[in-house]
Write a protein that binds this DNA or RNA. Structure first.
Lengths: 385, 385
DNA sequence: CTGAAAGCGCTTACAG
DNA sequence: CTGAAAGCGCTTACAG
């Protein structure tokens, strides 16, 4: 048996409109919280059936003006909060959330994002929400276009979109708008779109944080290296560009007087990178700091680890395994991180809350910019609750 | 109508032990996930009623050896994961979680902890879990003892305990052990106790982080000030002591050669504090850094803001409003933070998961040590998902 | 337009 | 020891 609503004295067939809003706790029990009002309570108060109440609550129409008025009157007085647990159980409705994100190998940046998605997937399943992943090659625009093409014929109720290829995302969201499908952005924001929400960081300010970590108490005449990884195709993401803007802006505001030397490195060619960097350091022995604006600072770190004489401060982004190691070893001075797991988790969960509960998330969610040093990196886990 | 389990061909009265484990998707529908197995499925496979299955699943006994064996055999084969939504809905069982924590005023450290508790409270209510708060004066041992006394006569199913008064917490947990009530610690750990879990930070390493932030690239011969706030009664929490140990240990390992000057300050007496500090700085113009080990570094900051000539780096703990402001203004160099909202949230939720789902949390949860600078403090919100 | 009824997957007395 | 039945609060055809 479950808790009793009414004392033996109050018959179930109470006069409509004459029932206490909150019957309070069962006599004898020491319950503090008031009993929540249920659909049947409202139906009884309005003198109609639960079916009719349900119809007005969900705006399904087919309710007489008279009943609608009575029910709304009751709804006004009481604080009805539907029991989502019961709703989920009763409703067969299944929702599908599409997650559009880059492919990745273990230990890469997007693997952390995926961990958050997976965590959300587990939780969302309880509410009849399923996650479907659509992944593309982040260095190949056409692979992204293929995914969008596939999505066109796919049924889904909401989408999480990684905005790396901004120029293609924008027109696609117009299609989603037309289909009435809500979507949230992760990685970087496109405020012009009609997104339900954004989860990510301010790339510009993330650049300033890196600049502070690199240049604080550095000789203002020292020179810096900006490491860039060249991929087939294009020249760096929108996010990297913004970080660099923020970085340079910080230097300007802090009267930095040194030079910045760009150096193009390759992802998998340590010998090539070493030649480039040796040449650079030979020419400019004044270099005292280095930075990268994507997650590959471990490449520069690998080089510097083999040349301890250089004594160069190095700052980069993202706590991927290889960067973590270089930080713990003291080769990397600091990392700036953007909670990718949280982006994945909240991206999915916000859509989940919107679809099943109609709960609208905050539109712009700029996540914290985490600073990791050798001293606090051991505890940098568990970003997802 | 809900989803169909069986095709029209398979009658509901299937031969026991002869039913496909996973009937798969309904024909025609493009469902990917296999249908989860339910209690009735197991009952059918074992040739018993759901009541009997329920009894073995909950170890309620009163099951014949034969049936027990058959049911266990089925359970072995299938991956039965009870539908918690249905369980919560069906079960009238209510749980009470007691939260024992310091009283606080708005803007103080424990207000952030409370925010996490409140957030958890909202979520936990869905699972029939209620939160009751018991608060004490963190500077008054007897108020803590009163709370423990009250708890003795109070019925509750689990407790979150802030361990500030460690000497009293330990014997109290022995009582809880005797009553069979699970408890989790927050703030600082007492590993000798039988706690279900701990959520907090490593105070010792938090001291090292502060030392790094204060002393990096500081003249190794510079002197430092250690600010201590004297409260009525005792002399600093266990946590503060550990942080100071970690701080001094770091200095030792990094060949710091300066002096550390302790200075006792008062919470609400700026004039007194100014006299003390003026005298100190007059005597030791070599002081180039200052630290506090609790959340009151805004006191030192207030003094330093009025004496810009001192040019002293200042590091403290916790992002409470007054510290946040001093950091944004550039008076405080850095703050180290310990995610109090997450401690409150996860403290309650871990107990919730244990009580309603029997899910055991990780025992030791050392949360990240966050580093806040002027550049990243604007985004330091939203630590709770 | 409306209400009665069945069902979601589980729990809980209760009769045997 | 066991099964049939009612119930949790909601949704969903369906008959009127």
């Amino acid at each position: 048996m479950n808790r009793n609503r009414y004392s033996p004295l109050s018959a179930p067939g109470d006069t409509p409109g004459n029932v206490p809003e909150n019957s309070g706790a069962q006599s004898g029990a020491q319950s503090d919280a008031p009993m929540p009002v249920r659909l049947v309570d409202i139906a009884r108060m309005a003198g109609v059936s639960v079916g009719t109440v349900d119809r007005v609550i969900h705006n399904r129409g087919k309710v007489s003006a008279a009943n609608l008025a009575r029910i709304n009157a009751v709804l006004q007085r009481v604080d009805y909060r539907p029991n989502l647990i019961a709703r989920t159980l009763a409703s067969g409705r299944q929702y599908v959330v599409a997650v559009v994100m880059p492919r990745f190998a273990a230990g890469e940046y997007w693997a952390d994002f995926e961990a958050g998605v997976a965590r959300a997937e587990t939780e969302a399943r309880r509410y009849n929400v399923t996650v479907r992943r659509f992944s593309f090659d982040q260095y190949d625009l056409s692979s992204f276009e293929e995914v969008l093409g596939a999505l066109r014929d796919e049924p889904f109720d909401g989408a999480v979109l990684a905005t790396l290829f901004a120029e293609r995302v924008v027109p696609f969201t117009a299609e989603l708008d037309a289909r009435g499908i809500p979507y949230v952005f992760v990685d970087s924001d496109l405020p012009a779109c009609n997104r339900l929400a954004y989860f990510g960081t301010s790339s510009f300010d993330a650049g300033a944080v890196a600049a502070r970590l690199l240049c604080e108490r550095l000789d203002p005449d020292a020179d810096l290296v900006v490491g860039k990884i060249i991929h087939r195709g294009e020249g760096g993401s929108n996010q990297c560009r913004e970080r660099e803007r923020g970085f340079r802006d910080y230097l300007r505001r802090h009267d930095f007087r040194g030079e910045l030397y760009d150096v193009s490195l390759r992802l998998d060619d340590a010998a090539y990178n070493a030649r480039c960097l040796d040449a650079l350091f030979d020419r400019h022995p004044t270099v005292a700091g280095a930075v990268t604006f994507n997650s590959t600072c471990h490449i520069l770190a690998g080089y510097l680890a083999a040349r301890p004489a250089h004594r160069v401060r190095l700052v980069g982004y993202d706590v991927i395994d290889r960067n973590r190691r270089m930080l713990a070893d003291g080769v990397v001075t600091a990392l700036v991180a953007q909670r990718p797991e949280v982006q994945g988790y909240r991206g999915v969960m916000s859509l989940c809350g919107w679809l099943v509960e109609g709960r609208r998330p905050e539109a712009v969610n700029n996540l914290p910019l985490d600073i990791l040093l050798k001293e606090n990196i051991p505890y940098y886990t568990n970003n997802i609750i």
